[in-house]
């Protein structure tokens, strides 16, 4: 096995182990917040994947919502409460939607791509609001999840879900890191820099874009089904464009250099949300807005670029040399 591959696997494992241990020390409210942040982080990881190929989706609420509803409907209508199964179904459902929608929108770039994804997510929102059979605008509540047949009591269910979330997040982050470092991941960067040359070298920009969109969709579905279980309730707002806006916020805050940074950024968002809900309930959006502008001005490479400064050749920073170059290119 290549040294960097081994390092990626190893850091994924170490991170997962560390987070699992930490989980037993955290207070319940923070446990819930971290779980929710991981759900958001997974969706944002999808956006990062798209960003590496030069695209930003302002409509990831679409796949987040589909993942959540797929898991929710399976749980309430068919009575499947197995958390791993619900996650899988959420991921597959959204991934399939990504594979279907991807080819339709893969020709678009920049704001057209962004707006088209918004439009699609809002179509879903509009449909769900009117579908009274599945709760309309109120949505519906999910039963408590089970874990391989085990039904945790109220005190431990948050911990059980946290453990699941950590495992899923570390697996997803490791897989994404491997993909970014692979030849296919390098081709995505090439697509972002110069599409014409990619075609003239004989590779398909369309394929790269559809692949990234499908991966982003699957990650979005995973995040959606996870948060459906964490929140215990889903509604059409999962697909509303302001929800998608938060995912974009997390991605920009994280930057596309590090896969770990998205989860840190998501946690920052959640903590800011909790604190401002408590102390400045009227100005939560304003704080986020100011935060976003400040990030773009003062930290253009995102939280990931901070990681890199700290750990020069650390696991999260990826391959030092090329990652540094990316840093220079990062918008």
């Amino acid at each position: 096995m290549h040294a960097s591959t081994r390092r990626t696997y190893l850091s994924g494992l170490i991170l997962a182990a560390a987070l699992l241990v930490v989980g037993f020390l955290l207070p319940a409210w923070l446990l819930f917040t971290v779980t929710k942040a991981i759900g958001y982080g997974l969706v944002a990881l999808g956006i990062i994947t798209l960003m590496r190929g030069g695209l930003v989706s302002f409509g990831q609420g679409l796949v987040y919502c589909i993942g959540a509803y797929a898991a929710g409907l399976l749980a309430t209508r068919i009575g499947v409460t197995e958390a791993p199964l619900l996650l899988l179904v959420g991921m597959v459902a959204s991934g399939l939607v990504g594979l279907l929608v991807g080819p339709l929108i893969a020709r678009y770039r920049g704001i057209f791509f962004a707006m088209l994804t918004v439009a699609l997510s809002m179509v879903l929102y509009g449909i769900l609001v009117k579908m009274n059979a599945i709760g309309g605008s109120d949505g519906f509540t999910l039963p408590e999840p089970t874990f391989f047949g085990w039904q945790p009591d109220v005190g431990t269910s948050d911990l059980a879900l946290y453990v699941t979330a950590v495992i899923v997040a570390c697996a997803a982050a490791t897989a994404c890191r491997l993909y970014y470092d692979s030849m296919a991941g390098m081709m995505a960067l090439a697509v972002r820099e110069n599409e014409l040359r990619v075609e003239y070298l004989g590779s398909s920009v369309f394929n790269v874009t559809v692949r990234n969109f499908a991966i982003a969709a699957a990650l979005g579905g995973l995040g959606g089904s996870l948060n459906a279980m964490a929140l215990g309730h889903i509604d059409p707002l999962f697909s509303f464009w302001t929800t998608s806006g938060e995912f974009v916020f997390i991605s920009v805050l994280a930057g596309h250099l590090s896969v770990g940074a998205v989860f840190v950024s998501a946690l920052i968002l959640e903590l800011v949300r909790s604190f401002s809900n408590r102390y400045f309930p009227e100005t939560w959006q304003m704080i986020i807005g100011i935060f976003l502008i400040a990030t773009i001005i003062f930290l253009p490479g995102g939280v990931g670029s901070l990681f890199q400064r700290v750990l020069k050749r650390g696991p999260a920073a990826g391959r030092g040399e090329s990652a540094e170059n990316e840093g220079r290119a990062a918008p």
Partner: peptide, 26 residues
């Protein structure tokens, strides 16, 4: 590919040249 190195530019050309590469190999 402006931000990449000369070596990486040629590596992209190799990547595009039709050989199969694993998703899980750097």
């Amino acid at each position: 590919y402006e931000p990449m190195t000369a070596l990486e530019n040629v590596m992209v050309a190799i990547g595009a040249s039709g050989r199969r590469f694993s998703f899980f190999q750097p």
